[in-house]
Design a binder for these strands. Structure first.
Length: 493
RNA sequence: GGGCCGCUAGCUCAUCGGGUAGAGCGGGGGACUUUUAAUCCCAAGGUGCCGGGAUCGAGACCCGGGCGGCCCA
């Protein structure tokens, strides 16, 4: 290559490739459009052909063939020597070649960045999943569907915000660093707050803070953000994941079920053009209303075993035994029923179905069912064998909530490290009076998996958590110094 | 945490009953005035994941470890 000119600081006037090509479908082979465009992107294929050359230029909206002629294209030789993956910007007329390919006939062009590494086999791409996750920037170029998935994810998030905003919800941000972990049964990450000389926790859920905002008069409030749970890595779990939580005053779980149905089905219709989707071989129609069925009912349907909370602990334990579900001696009737459901039934439900009438034992933040003893007003909608949301009539009574949390804390003392703790600030807020409120939690990662028909969470996370592929260096002394320097921290400040 | 499978050139993959490795693509050089994964010619490119062991000899066999995948807990 000739002398390497420094890339420009800006390259103005570009038009998206998809837009540059649009409207020229009628151009006949060999015909020129008279329209001159400037496009930019990566050269992903190159076919030099002596005194003329072809290449494929791709940006995030699409691809177009570049057509160059030694006689009319500037620095023609250099253009034919580009590596696959180099960024260029170019200006030329939209034409259709003799062989019928819509192209930009390059007049002038600029190298915007050279690549030092390839983007995989140009035909087969990159399949090594380890490489794909660790170098997602490569994956995004090598595998078209990956890019589409993540663009879809962004659209899903935007669409959900729009729908909530349209219903009068306001988005807020509550602490990620919390002095006590709360709002879900999960192990938290612990970190140290130097200035306060105290350990803090990365939130496992924003729930308790959002409810305090309802107490504070935020009648429709939501937060869409990251939660952290200190659990193992698996195809279905990532330690950090994205959750929507929304709370609506004066509403119950039935109202909130309708909200979830609208968020899911409405977004599907908007982005996929249909509510009928296929997830891992199962066809599902997301069009509301969704079936509602009690937990005992669906367990009976799937297993053929009659069961009901009212049967009592011993009878349910016997059912569990017949179904091969292990039961801890400390479990009560509700917990046993829930274990049976989780092990035998949940994955079999294609849905969409709201599973309801959960036992109070496994639902410490949910209000008691208005008519069914031992049950709470909670629904979990299941689609394609997976839980995609939680829907509650929120527990508002400070005394009941206190006794539930005290019971949780006791379980924690007894060794259940996923059990909750007593949060006095939260309880004091409830004492100020929380109106009847409905709440939802909607897993964004799972929703994207559903819409994109992908079986693993890693395919919908740009940078999923992975084991370190080399020893961590930051803990070492010179490593820390280097990090400070690299961030340009002002010396002596 | 347990079981099974995988790890070979930058990428995608071969090779073998143990005798120190190949192809396509990419990258380098050359030819080519309508290509579509262009084609053709030339040369280069390997710590066979890491560490041990048995063997005259190991990428292959044995042991340990790492990372990944799938399944189970």
């Amino acid at each position: 290559m000739s002398a390497t000119a420094e890339p420009p600081y800006r390259f103005p006037g570009t038009v998206a490739i998809a837009a540059a090509v649009a409207g020229h479908e009628q151009l006949a082979p060999g015909e020129s459009s008279g329209t001159v465009v400037t496009v930019a992107g990566r050269v992903m294929l190159s076919r030099p052909q002596g005194r003329l050359a072809f290449a494929e230029l791709r940006d995030w909206t699409g691809a177009v063939q570049l057509f160059a002629l030694a006689a009319t294209t500037e620095r023609f030789e250099e253009l034919t020597r580009l590596s696959l993956g180099d960024w260029i910007g170019c200006t030329g007329e939209v034409v259709r070649t003799k062989r019928g390919e819509l192209s930009v006939e390059v007049a002038t062009w600029t190298l915007l960045a050279a690549t030092r590494h390839g983007f995989g086999d140009k035909w087969r791409g990159v399949h090594d999943v380890d490489l794909r996750y660790r170098q997602r920037e490569v994956d995004l170029w090598a595998n078209e569907r990956v890019r589409e998935t993540f663009l879809l994810r962004s659209k899903v998030v935007a669409a959900i915000r729009r729908r909530l905003d349209a219903r009068g919800f306001v988005e807020v941000e509550t602490p990620v660093l919390q002095p006590l972990p709360g709002g879900a049964n999960a192990r938290p990450f612990v970190t140290h707050f130097n200035a306060l000389h105290a350990d803090f926790y990365l939130r496992v859920a924003p729930e308790l803070y959002l409810k305090r905002l309802v107490v504070g008069g935020f009648e429709r409030v939501y937060e869409l953000g990251r939660d952290f749970r200190n659990e193992g890595l698996s195809p279905r779990h990532n330690p950090e994941f994205t959750m929507l939580e929304a709370y609506q005053a004066y509403a119950d779980y039935g109202d909130m079920a309708e909200l979830v149905e609208d968020l899911v089905a409405g977004t599907a219709a908007e982005l996929l053009g249909t509510t009928e989707i296929e997830f891992q071989g199962r066809r599902v129609d997301l069009a509301p209303p969704w079936r509602r069925a009690s937990l005992a009912e669906v367990v009976s349907e799937v297993t053929g075993e009659e069961c009901d909370l009212a049967m009592g602990r011993d009878a349910l334990a016997a059912v569990a035994g017949r179904l091969g579900v292990e039961v801890d001696a400390a479990f009560g009737a509700g917990r046993i029923l829930y274990e049976i459901y989780e092990r035998t039934t949940e994955h079999e439900l294609t849905g969409p179905v709201h599973v309801m009438d959960y036992p109070v034992e496994v639902s410490p933040l949910v209000r008691a069912h208005r008519s069914k003893d031992g049950a709470v007003e909670r629904m979990t909608p299941i689609v394609g064998g997976r839980e995609i949301a939680e829907i509650y009539s929120e527990l508002c009574d400070p005394d009941v909530q206190r006794s539930r949390l005290v019971a949780q804390a006791a379980a924690r003392e007894a060794g259940d490290d996923e059990a909750m703790v007593v949060d006095e600030e939260f309880l004091r807020a409830l004492e100020h009076g929380m109106p009847p409120t409905g709440g939802i939690g909607l897993g964004i990662d799972r929703l994207v998996m559903l819409f994109a028909d992908l079986p693993t969470i890693r395919e919908v996370l740009l940078f999923p958590a992975l084991r370190l592929d080399r020893p961590a260096e930051l803990g070492e002394e010179d490593g820390e110094d280097a990090a400070s320097d690299a961030h340009g921290l002002a010396p002596g400040s």
